[in-house]
Design a protein around this nucleic acid. Structure first.
Lengths: 350, 350
DNA sequence: ATTAAGATCTTAATTGATTAAGAGCGCGGA
DNA sequence: TCCGCGCTCTTAATCAATTAAGATCTTAAT
């Protein structure tokens, strides 16, 4: 009575295991009478149904899509961008009738057995830093993989936006408004937990490809407008929170000369910068312009930002993996859009 | 070259399959030389590593925790309460080094093969309506199960708050402030998509146990204060959104006599009611008091609400399933707390 | 009466690993 | 020289199913 399998039932009834299997998976292959007797005995013995693992092994499909985040989950789910992406991916999984296996990838801890042992048919990898061992582990599994946002892996489909161009547009927007004293606050460049000023060397060595691209966009646009990038104050954050944004805001706004425009790479950070501006009694956009990124928490606050099709990115990533279509796109760049709201305005007169 | 297994490698090297298995799972059982040759050949043949499904079958563990939501995922993740719960559960899963398999349970569509086929070691069931077929399917799997919020299943651990008491406290708060003209707006009672007034019969037939309890709490408190419940206007919503709350707010506030206090069963709904009050130019809390539920989106809006330990509920549910401790609690009722903020105040003079 | 077609059930191969127990062998000690 | 021990590796059982192909037995048509 420890373990009830198909065989247990078969033995009890004096039929073959195959017959019992048919009773569950292909009822039309059996006479009604026997099938019913089988079901009764199964019930009586407390049979839990065909073992999904064995079934999965035999059928060669797991019925699940593996999802890999760079962050601790508790952390990822604090991020509106991640949630929207997740909604999209979940929609695709739902439509295909497969589960979504979220794999823990503890920050710092670089063990990856979970990837090795994951019972899945495909992987979706989101925002992994360069050289993260989990990526190698995923590729070793030789399953279909799609990468979202970063890092680009030649030979595997990629979904994301044109980061350099999006960054450039955000910067060009304030530059076009006449701003020349620019400040930047960014999160998610490195994994070392550093918070504070970052010079260009540190900026360029960022571990996250998408953020490097976004940053390159900022820089290119600034340099084209004649702004000396090396002189642009750049504050780096370890956490993507409103409080962190406020801290960056104060650091930047305490500088002399004070920036008249601040670029941030998340909306949450931008909201924090606005908090700092409010602390200092600065008028936005009269004395300070602020640009966010993602359009995930921006609307109510009237934040100018770059809108990314977050949910669509997730859905497309899912469909690529679950569609079964052999022809997979190499690099799928989805459109972004600059959304101008009340947090940006013409540069104040000097 | 189609499929590379342990056997393929074994054949190539003229060793037994067991040897190759040891090379991967217990390197100390082999001479260094042979192990290295095995690894080389594995690499050369493009071996993807020991098949996780087969491994899982043999070892008898899936390395994953199944999670069942009543809602479409895209919808569940729009709810701050769900997200917080999820963070807690994910933390527990992370600590235990297991994945979290989210099972789609399309709304309306009541197919449940995903439950039958889920390769998991245990299930966490969240907020399923009475009689949902997925619950039967889960129980049939005879795996450890913990239910969160609803429905209570005798014999299986349950985690949640004392809904009737929480509801009663929310109502008693405004009653204590002198309010007697109460209005109620609730979401998530039925699955039929109905939006509009609900009489007591419909209230009592709600499909969701927790909501029935919460509602019972409202009612008990009201009746104890001498309020005729049958006369309390009750607006039911199909969606938990701010917009829906606004609609309910208008419906309730258009009544004559106008309610001076409105109870809602989610914070999001309460925010919508506040929007409606603003539309009508009503002073809160001078002319109208509003109470939310969950404390998930309430703080910034200054909403009086019932705080639930959302994240803790998730974490505890996870630990119960993953701890391996045999002695599982039957019914774990976590403490809630009435948080009084600026959205409630003394009843206006008549 | 004969044959074919259906219905029902069985045989046996297959899915891809893990692991306890055993076998062969070289080596050190008595 | 012989014994026992440790190191490597193999044998074979096991995990729990699915399914093509074959075996029986009815039933119906010719």
């Amino acid at each position: 009575m420890t373990k009830v399998t198909l065989q247990t039932i078969a033995d009890r009834l004096g039929v073959s295991r195959a017959t019992v299997s048919y009773a569950f998976s292909r009822p039309d292959q059996l006479s009604d009478g026997l099938r019913q007797r089988i079901m009764e005995v199964a019930d009586e013995l407390g049979y839990a149904g065909p073992n999904p693992t064995a079934r999965s092994l035999r059928l060669g499909r797991a019925g699940a899509l593996g999802l890999l985040f760079s962050e601790t989950l508790a952390y990822a789910f604090a991020d509106p961008y991640a949630i929207a992406f997740f909604q999209g991916l979940a929609t695709a999984a739902e439509d295909a009738g497969v589960g979504l296996l979220i794999l823990p990838l503890p920050h710092g801890d670089r063990r990856t057995e979970t990837v090795r042992d994951a019972v899945v048919d495909a992987f979706c990898v989101v925002s992994l830093p360069d050289g993260h061992p989990a990526l190698a582990e995923v590729l070793a599994r030789k399953l279909p993989v799609v990468v979202v946002d970063e890092p680009y892996v030649p030979g595997h489909p990629f979904v994301g936006i044109d980061e350099p161009r999006a960054g450039a547009e955000a910067a060009a927007h304030v530059l076009g408004l006449g701003h020349r004293r620019i400040g930047v606050a960014m999160v998610g460049l490195h994994e070392d937990g550093h918070t504070g000023w970052a010079d260009t060397a540190r900026q360029e060595s960022a571990a996250f490809e998408a953020m490097r691209g976004r940053l390159r966009g900022y820089r290119t646009a600034c340099e084209q407008a004649g702004v000396d990038w090396a002189a642009v104050p750049f504050f780096e954050l370890a956490r993507n929170s409103r409080e962190a944004g406020r801290r960056a805001g104060h650091a930047l706004l305490d500088r002399d000369p004070r920036p008249t425009a601040i670029l941030t790479n998340t909306d949450v950070l931008a909201l924090g910068v606005l908090d700092a501006a409010a602390d200092l009694g600065l008028d936005v956009p009269g004395e300070l312009s602020v640009v966010g990124f993602s359009d995930s928490a921006a609307e109510e606050a009237g934040l100018t930002t770059i809108r990314q099709p977050k949910q669509e990115i997730g859905e497309i990533a899912g469909r690529i993996l679950l569609s079964g279509v052999a022809a997979k796109p190499e690099r799928l760049t989805l459109p972004h859009e600059l959304i101008v709201r009340g947090s940006t305005g013409p540069a104040p007169l000097p």
